[in-house]
Computed example of a mutant assay.
Amino acid sequence: MTLPPPIRALVVDDEPLARRNLVVLLKGDPEIGVIGECASGAEAVAAIRQRKPDLLFLDVQMPECDGFDVLELLGSDCPQTTIFVTAHDEYALRAFEAGALDYLLKPFDDARFARALARAKERIALHATHRHAPRRLAVKTPRQLLFIDMSDVDWVEAASYYACLHVGPNTHLIRRTMAELERDLGDAFVRIHRSTIVNLRRVAGLELQSSGDYAVVLLSGIRLRLSRGCRQALEMRLRQESR
């Protein structure tokens, strides 16, 4: 029987000892293949785009370009599974809003690491068996279960541990991470900010703001912040859609 290829893992931390500890733990698992280490956020962005890891262990606080900057700069190039590793507990909520699967607080023991790695394996395996995006999203409310067509969603925003689906004049909360939704919504959607995903078919254009940044203008007139790291990818996708 042919064994599946190992899960490609990348470790990003500006502390050499922290990187070494993670690499040692990962190399103890035969299902994991460590494809590299990065000591800075800028180095991580380049490595992720080139090597396409399945699993990313990402430090939060790094000089010049922190972990959140890395994910924002990557946009749709973010790995399918990210685990934040940090000594600071105050970033946990922001990490989950950014689509992180788990949040390892240093110092952690082997059992805590094993639980995080098991969750990562489960997500990656699930992704491998569901490569085709579903056409509808299931939304539970106190009184009913709704099924919303993907094409009807205008935009999505992070809302603490939930995501908020904007469908015409209605909004629906769904307990999914932004990374999961970005994957499941498919090619018709693109992330324009770490906390915002838009339906390309609802975009009317881009508008220059007084700050020098751009806003994404939807057909409904709603204006959404466009991060600088996502602008190039969005413009490329919009050009492709207009052909």
Results as ranks from 00 to 15, higher is better:
residue 123 R to F: 00
residue 38 C to V: 06
residue 223 R to N: 02
residue 119 R to Q: 10
residue 127 H to P: 00
residue 200 L to Y: 06
residue 115 R to M: 09
residue 28 G to Y: 05
residue 38 C to R: 04
residue 190 V to K: 02
residue 23 V to I: 12
residue 131 R to S: 11
residue 56 L to M: 05
residue 146 L to Y: 10
residue 168 G to T: 00
residue 73 L to A: 08
residue 16 P to H: 04
residue 171 T to V: 14
residue 26 L to E: 12
residue 198 V to W: 06
residue 192 I to F: 02
residue 1 M to Y: 08
residue 169 P to K: 12
residue 86 T to R: 12
residue 145 L to A: 14
residue 188 A to L: 01
residue 172 H to L: 09
residue 233 A to K: 13
residue 78 C to T: 09
residue 128 A to M: 00
residue 17 L to K: 12
residue 224 L to T: 01
residue 233 A to W: 05
residue 83 I to G: 04
residue 62 M to C: 07
residue 46 A to L: 06
residue 136 R to V: 08
residue 59 D to V: 05
residue 15 E to P: 00
residue 75 G to K: 08
residue 132 H to M: 04
residue 122 E to Y: 01
residue 102 D to G: 04
residue 93 L to C: 02
residue 208 L to V: 06
residue 136 R to M: 06
residue 35 I to Q: 05
residue 36 G to C: 08
residue 223 R to W: 05
residue 22 L to A: 06
residue 216 V to K: 14
residue 175 R to L: 11
residue 148 I to Y: 09
residue 116 A to P: 04
residue 93 L to P: 02
residue 98 A to Q: 07
residue 49 R to Y: 01
residue 9 A to H: 08
residue 30 P to G: 13
residue 186 G to R: 06
residue 127 H to V: 00
residue 86 T to K: 11
residue 41 G to D: 06
residue 18 A to K: 10
residue 27 K to H: 12
residue 132 H to C: 03
residue 232 Q to T: 15
residue 135 R to Q: 13
residue 188 A to G: 15
residue 96 F to W: 05
residue 205 G to F: 06
residue 212 G to P: 06
residue 76 S to E: 15
